[in-house]
Every structure is written in structure tokens, then in C-alpha cells.
């Protein structure tokens, strides 16, 4: 595989990963001994060319091409790698940070655009919902009774003695305000508008 090494002695990428808000204070990326436990139990690795051990190596070697590597999108976020790492590293967390870097650069936006409607529903209702395209796929895969379930859900919830799951208006307003001030609304607009 072609790799780009801007500076052999640079630790810029690993430092950027560690500085990211997602990075746990005890993220032990420097402690990685390249044993490969993570890759050996990884469902993404079993189904694709995703290789968490190699991903971590490339971050440590400041190989910035890892950010554009399609394979980082095959992680299942199951954290099995995290639970078996003998060195206290967390490949799953490193993966999530690299994906955000890809989104910030622009390329990664195409990977998440399909889920943008979830953000819209979160802003409108305070609860996210699965975008209609994926819902249609589920109806096809699960069967038409899945559609009936969705049509009946309010009645079923009443039968079970449960109230509405939609938040009161005041709470929805608070959430919308938070998501505006946190920059999420602008982020969502950028995600939806990108035609790259």
C-alpha cells in the first residue's frame, strides 16, 4: 500500500488524535505493542480489509493517508479491541477520531450524509429516528408487519401503560437551542449541502 510520510520523526497525527475531545485521558496509543489482539477479534477485520492494528501503526508513524483510507469505515464500534488490549489502547476510539478528521476534511461527509435526517428529527423532537430510506430497507427485510408495528406503536404503548415518548415543547425548544449554539445545526447544514 502506498503511504505518505511527511516527516519521519513527526508525531503530529498521534498528537492530534490525543488532543481530540473524544480521546480518553488514559488512551494508551503510545503503549501499543503491535501484538494484533485487536485485529484477531475484530468483526470488521473478519468481514473486510479493516485492520485496527495496522491503523494504529499508521497513526504512530504519522501516516496521514489513514484518514482517507476507506477501511476505517468498516469498524463496528463494538469495542472488543478495547476490552482485550493488553496495553490500554483503544483502537475503536482512535477509529472514531480518524473518522471525525475525515469528516472535517470533507471526504468523510459522504459517509454520513445518508443519516442526516436523524439529526433533523433530533432537532424537531428531541429523539432521533432512522432515515426513511433505511426504514424502507427494514420493511423489505423484516416484512410488512414491521410497518404495522410503526403504525400501531402509540396504541401499543398505551396498552403497556406507557406515555408519549415525544418531549414537551419546552424541552424540544431547549434542545434545539443547545444544538444551535453547540454548532450541530451548522454541521448538519454542511453535511446536507456537501456535493463533493
Amino acid at each position: 500500500m502506498r503511504t505518505i510520510k511527511l516527516n519521519k520523526n513527526s508525531h503530529k497525527l498521534v498528537d492530534d488524535v490525543l488532543k481530540n475531545l473524544k480521546a480518553s485521558p488514559d488512551l494508551g496509543i503510545y503503549k501499543c505493542v503491535q501484538c494484533g489482539m485487536c485485529t484477531s477479534i475484530c468483526p470488521g477485520a473478519s468481514q473486510s480489509d479493516y485492520d485496527p492494528r495496522d491503523m494504529v501503526r499508521r497513526v504512530l508513524e504519522d501516516d496521514v493517508s489513514i484518514v482517507d483510507d476507506e477501511n476505517i469505515w468498516n469498524c463496528f464500534s463494538c469495542y472488543t479491541c478495547n476490552s482485550v488490549c493488553p496495553s490500554g489502547n483503544n483502537a475503536s476510539e482512535v477509529n472514531q477520531i480518524l473518522r471525525q478528521m475525515s469528516i472535517d476534511k470533507g471526504e468523510g461527509i459522504l459517509k454520513i450524509q445518508s443519516f442526516a435526517a436523524y439529526g433533523d428529527s433530533f432537532i424537531e423532537l428531541g429523539v432521533g429516528s432512522v432515515p426513511s430510506k433505511f426504514f424502507d430497507d427494514m420493511v423489505k427485510d423484516v416484512g410488512p408487519e414491521y410497518m404495522n408495528l410503526k403504525l400501531d406503536i402509540e396504541d401499543i404503548r398505551s396498552e403497556l401503560g406507557l406515555g408519549s415518548y415525544i418531549l414537551p415543547e419546552k424541552s424540544i425548544d431547549e434542545i434545539e437551542e443547545i444544538l444551535d449554539k453547540s454548532g450541530f445545526k451548522a454541521r448538519l447544514k454542511r453535511i446536507k449541502g456537501s456535493k463533493k
Binding site: F122, I178, R187, L188
Partner: peptide, 16 residues
């Protein structure tokens, strides 16, 4: 909602 599905789809940012 905790943002879960959107969070791990990488749609949500950590700050939000």
C-alpha cells in the same frame, strides 16, 4: 435521547 445512533454513525460531534 442520548444521541447514540447518530453519535456512532459519526453524525453527531462529541461536544453536542
Amino acid at each position: 435521547c442520548c444521541t447514540g445512533l447518530g453519535h456512532y454513525y459519526d453524525l453527531f460531534d462529541q461536544l453536542s
